[in-house]
């Protein structure tokens, strides 16, 4: 298939270009009688090209090794963890106190923190992101679009530790004037900030989906006398729905895995609840807390972060796969 693999014989590379190419006179006077000395067999590619190809393949393979590494590390430590703590407790206990003397290893409080903060984030990012997507693809002129779209993507480029600062130092005190009973650490403020961060993910990918809706469908709708708004909401958005769903799924997965914002501003109290005004500890924030502490590696307490990491990995991976499947079904439907 490639030059390097086409031939099995390995004639030395010196054979390449023998004859007229190398001979300055050859270009003027090609050999008479069509007896060209240049062979077709052998290998044009010197052996080092094969080495290079293998090297490039190895580079591509690093990503596979990364995946294997992640799974191996998480699985190894998690299996050990479940040798020490019952998996049933992990999945059913409603308390998470591995660092206390009365140890409980129920994932639910951490899960609840993760879901509440992510829920707030999606509640912010979905309407904003979707409206922005509609604005960019259906309303804005190409010039405005080419300016606004990259600007929106800046939102996703701000380091999360900076967002964490905004949530804790700026937004929470501000919200405390408006929201009664809001704790200094809470799920609301980091949730909102996280929503701003993931909004461009929704707007950008949804816009792509909306953009991909064939113009003929819009024209058909206009042809029936429908207004622009009716066309957008009755024709365009429904057609793009699985693409939009894919973008929201991806954004939610990003929110679930987000670490620094919640580690800084959501607090560190594992809590089973749904009131975003209270402090929560998310799965990611717990991993950070333990990493910062002085718990000895190799203990059950330390292994909790791998067990929590595994849960996090499974959640985000399945959401990413779901998003991919949704995106594929969208492309297939067009």
């Amino acid at each position: 298939m490639t030059a390097a693999t086409a031939s099995a014989t390995s004639e030395p590379s010196a054979s390449l270009g023998t004859g007229a190419v190398g001979d300055p006179s050859g270009a003027v006077e090609p050999a008479v009688g069509d007896e060209d000395p240049r062979p077709l067999t052998g290998r044009a590619a010197p052996w080092h090209e094969r080495v290079i190809e293998i090297g490039l393949f190895a580079c591509a393979g690093v990503s596979v090794l990364t995946t294997i590494g992640i799974v191996a590390v998480l699985l190894g430590e998690t299996l050990q963890f479940f040798g020490e703590v019952s998996i049933l407790d992990f999945l059913t206990d409603t308390q998470w106190t591995p660092l206390f003397s009365d140890k409980h290893f129920g994932i639910w409080p951490l899960l609840s923190g993760t879901l509440v903060t992510s829920g707030v984030a999606i509640a912010v990012a979905l309407p904003f992101g979707l409206l922005a997507a509609i604005y960019l693809s259906e309303i804005a002129s190409p010039r405005v679009r080419s300016l606004v779209k990259p600007s929106l993507e800046l939102l996703a480029g701000v380091p999360t530790v900076v967002y964490g600062y905004f949530a804790l130092v700026t937004l929470t005190p501000l919200l405390q004037h408006v929201v009664p009973g809001l704790s200094g650490f809470n799920a609301l403020s980091p949730g909102i900030v996280m929503g701003v961060m993931i909004m461009p993910l929704i707007s950008s990918l949804s816009e792509d989906a909306i953009h991909a809706v064939p113009q003929s469908l819009r024209e058909a709708s206009y042809g029936l006398g429908a207004s622009k708004l009716a066309t957008i909401f009755r024709v365009v958005l429904p057609t793009a729905r699985s693409g939009i769903a894919a973008s929201v799924t991806l954004a939610a997965s990003r929110a679930i895995g987000e670490t620094m914002i919640v580690a800084i501003a959501a607090g560190q109290q594992p809590r089973l609840g749904i009131d975003p005004r209270q402090p929560f500890e998310t799965m990611t924030a717990y991993i950070v807390k333990v990493s910062l502490g002085d718990i000895a590696t190799g203990t059950t307490e330390f292994r909790t972060i791998f067990a929590v990491g595994s849960a996090l990995f499974v959640m985000t991976l399945s959401m990413n796969l779901l998003a991919m499947r949704l995106a594929r079904s969208f492309r297939g439907a067009l």
């Binding site: 031939s7 240049r38 044009a44």
Partner: peptide
């Protein structure tokens, strides 16, 4: 066939062929 030789023969390198 180029000059009677099958250019799709196993031992022919397409790179050398394209030089001709």
């Amino acid at each position: 066939e180029l000059d009677g030789r099958d250019v799709y023969a196993r031992d022919v390198d397409p790179v050398l062929l394209r030089r001709r």
